[in-house]
Amino acid sequence: MIALRRLIATEWAGLGLIFVLGSVLSALLSPSFFTEFNIYVMLRSASVGMLVAFAQMIVLAVGQMSLAVGALGGLVAVLFGAMLELLGLPLLVAIALALLIGVAGGLINGALTAATGISSFIVTLATGSVFTGINLGLTQSKPFHGVPPDFVAFGDARWSFMPALLWPPLIVAPLLAVFLYRLKPGRRLLAVGGNAYAAELSGISPAAMVVLAHAISGGLAGLAAVLAVAQLGAAQPEIGNTWLLISFAGPIIGGASLNGGSVSILGAMLAVMVIALIENTLVLVKVDPYWVQFALGALVLLTVGLNRWRATHAAKT
């Protein structure tokens, strides 16, 4: 009984339960749910989402937010496409440069926020608009199609139900966990998110941690963009347009605090899986695709409200 209660108290347990029950429900609604191919499709669509969620999560950890995750992803995607098509760079060089561009964009966000003390909301709203502006101005909204066939094949590759695209987030997740919970900079980053003032008194520089968090976020957004190019088979300028909701929904449904200092990597991954499950099921049962947006909004409101209720309820007993 105590073990059960402790399990329920952990942030991601509820999500796991929702995912399992949801999967059973989907399987009952549609016989094609539990097929190898459908699970592959679902996992593939969650791969980019997980990295997008991580990109926001690391900034939430330090107590800030970034509205520029999607815009930066879009910019990295088209620059990646341009490097491949116009400059003809080798794939690995282009990937490395794309990640560096992401980190650079994140550094700009972090440096501006840390140096000026202006709210990260306003700074990233502005830089996000600048990133999107450069993206649209350069591409005139036209995609780059000159992506190497090997790379597109990687985007479609699978082993049974397991898409190759899922590997990057599966590798990044434990690295992030080690960074945040075992390494000094990660612990310091969380400490600044929990209480910047106390962290500063104990000798941590909040500004440095803010810059670090944004830089990592930029790198993760860049990686997400590269995967999105592989998934779509072209560097579309629209990549990142729809990342805003999922970037916040993932970490927040997963149990991250908007005030900083507390995140759950597993929670964020499960939250993205639940979202992918909902999208997948709605498509399978041939519901109007516009319901997906409605369902996502409702899901965020519901879980945030529930978390809040559970927190106050737990505090009382």
């Binding site: 996000g128 502006g133 101005g137 909204s141």
Partner: peptide, 9 residues
């Protein structure tokens, strides 16, 4: 296409 860049700046 460049509008967004200017507004952001």
């Amino acid at each position: 296409f460049w509008l967004q860049l200017f507004l952001g700046l």
